[in-house]
């Protein structure tokens, strides 16, 4: 199943990178994303708004704490910030699956881990929208994204350590993942030395 496209994000009169830092847009855009996935997959989700509010507050603090001063680091920080969001969604679990269609294919990531799938789709779509709007770039999705074996590893690893979600989101969007210190943002990409493949993943 292809990920729902960024046009499921609600309209806003401000740049998405700014709209994202407002709870009203965050709630609305997350709900729209879940609705779009639900319509495409038949999975019925329940959103816990209290946990979603926690996600936002925790994410905002992490975002503000590492926001770079150097404007040339903005593109890399866009990727990092969307990874932080995925980490927080996995930690605070704002989604619950109410039902999955009978006979759904468990080798499809959308049915194997419906909550994780919705979180990944949301973070990739927001990342793609900001990259397109601010940097005139198209997000390149990696083939790993539709590989169920990567999803087995993804779910197992982030369940034990949600911080690894930051590296996995980079992997899914064809960026160079930082597996050793994923929660630290490096303003200079040269600071990031290390393996870029999936060999370190269990």
């Amino acid at each position: 199943m292809a990920l729902p496209l960024p046009d499921s994000l609600p309209q806003t009169d401000r740049p998405i990178r700014r709209a994202m830092r407002r709870m009203r847009w965050f709630k609305q855009s997350f709900a729209r994303q879940v609705e779009a996935i639900s319509a495409a997959s038949g999975v019925v989700y329940e959103i816990h708004n209290d946990r979603l509010a926690q996600v936002f507050i925790h994410w905002l603090r992490a975002f503000e704490a590492q926001k770079p001063k150097d404007p040339t680091a903005r593109r890399a920080f866009t990727n990092f910030a969307s990874g932080l969001m995925l980490q927080q969604l996995i930690r605070d679990v704002p989604l619950e699956v109410a039902s999955v269609p009978v006979g759904s294919d468990a080798s499809n990531p959308a049915f194997y881990w419906p909550e994780g799938y919705a979180y990944v789709a949301y973070c990739l779509n927001v990342r793609a929208a900001v990259l397109a709007q601010d940097f005139d770039e198209m997000l390149t999705l990696a083939p790993d994204l539709s590989d169920i074996r990567t999803w087995w590893s993804f779910k197992e690893n982030v369940t034990q350590d949600p911080a690894l979600a930051i590296a996995f989101l980079d992997l899914f969007s064809s960026e160079n993942p930082n597996w050793s210190t994923p929660t630290l943002f490096y303003e200079q990409t040269a600071q990031l030395e290390g393996p870029s493949d999936t060999e370190q993943i269990a």
């Binding site: 709870m23 209290d50 509010a53 507050i57």
Partner: peptide, 11 residues
């Protein structure tokens, strides 16, 4: 907006 403020207050 008010209900969003409530969610934020609780968080």
């Amino acid at each position: 907006l008010l209900l969003t403020c409530c969610d934020m207050a609780e968080a």
